[in-house]
């Protein structure tokens, strides 16, 4: 493409070993602005490792991650959040004892400010800001259909609701990029449909997303670009239709299935 704007995310030759075993082996990929980039692959392909490198939870051994032209390597998670990357977790990581509203408010930690003195004295500025943030959080809860459960402890919600709280918490800060780590794992088809609709809605709002998912129907229906990992290597990348017909991808999925079957 002649378009001169650089991709939102450019990963080059990313490598991460766990005790000698490569979880990621020279993986390169790009994710475009305003699009849904899906990251798929069999279990152990390195998808979650890649997400963890992107968010600073893990630091890669080699390679480079450019976010908006800026190198992310060596930055701690809270600094990366500050740049506008939010995420959901594969295994739910809500704060179970906090209310649903407070969980979503933790997604606005940067916006809430970190001055301890201001917090201890509860200055008028902070009071005003807190009120505004609560409204923002309630709006997000409304978008994700949870506003009537705002004051319940997050731990008491049914699983499907918890998944949506995670998404509300990620999107509430209006991030530049949102990483969705298996947002429909464990959900039934109706709930999956709801999440798919929410992802499409967020894409309409112009949000950029990287979606890690096993559910092929969801991936094919919501993504613009698909990257396939297998055994820590990138084996294919392209539009969903093209990737679906790629023989390497079929082998990675079906070949393994025939062995385990």
């Amino acid at each position: 493409m002649a378009n001169s704007t650089p991709p939102l995310i450019q990963v080059s030759n990313l490598t991460k070993h766990f005790g000698g075993l490569p979880a990621l082996d020279r993986v390169s990929l790009t994710a475009a602005r305003g699009q849904v980039t899906a990251l798929i692959g069999p279990n152990g392909a390195g998808k979650t490792t890649l997400i963890n490198c992107l968010t600073g939870v893990l630091s890669p051994d080699r390679g480079e991650i450019l976010f908006d032209g800026r190198d992310l390597s060596g930055l701690p998670p809270h600094e990366i959040t500050r740049l506008g990357i939010a995420r959901t977790f594969q295994n739910l990581r809500l704060f179970p004892r906090l209310s649903v509203l407070d969980n979503v408010l933790t997604g606005l930690t940067i916006q809430a400010g970190s001055s301890m003195l201001e917090a201890l004295l509860r200055t008028p500025g902070l009071r005003h800001r807190e009120r505004r943030l609560r409204l923002t959080a309630l709006e997000a809860l409304d978008t994700f259909g949870l506003v009537d459960k705002a004051d319940l402890p997050a731990g008491t919600l049914p699983y499907g609701d918890k998944k949506r709280v995670e998404m509300a918490r990620a999107f509430v800060s209006n991030p530049v990029l949102t990483l969705l780590d298996e947002p429909v794992a464990g959900l039934n088809s109706e709930e999956t449909g709801q999440i798919a609709a929410l992802i499409r809605q967020m894409r309409l709002y112009g949000k950029s997303m990287i979606l890690v998912e096993h559910d092929m129907d969801l991936v094919m229906s919501v993504s613009d670009h698909v990257v396939v990992l297998d055994g820590g290597k990138r084996i294919a990348a392209g539009p969903p239709e093209e990737v679906r017909r790629n023989p390497l991808v079929l082998e990675a999925y079906l070949g393994r299935m025939s062995v385990t079957a």
Partner: peptide
Amino acid sequence: SGVGRGLAALAQDEVAAATFGVN
């Protein structure tokens, strides 16, 4: 305050708290 929510968050899950900007 946001600082207080950050403390409550890190008490329950440090990784998740850090992901949302808690130092």
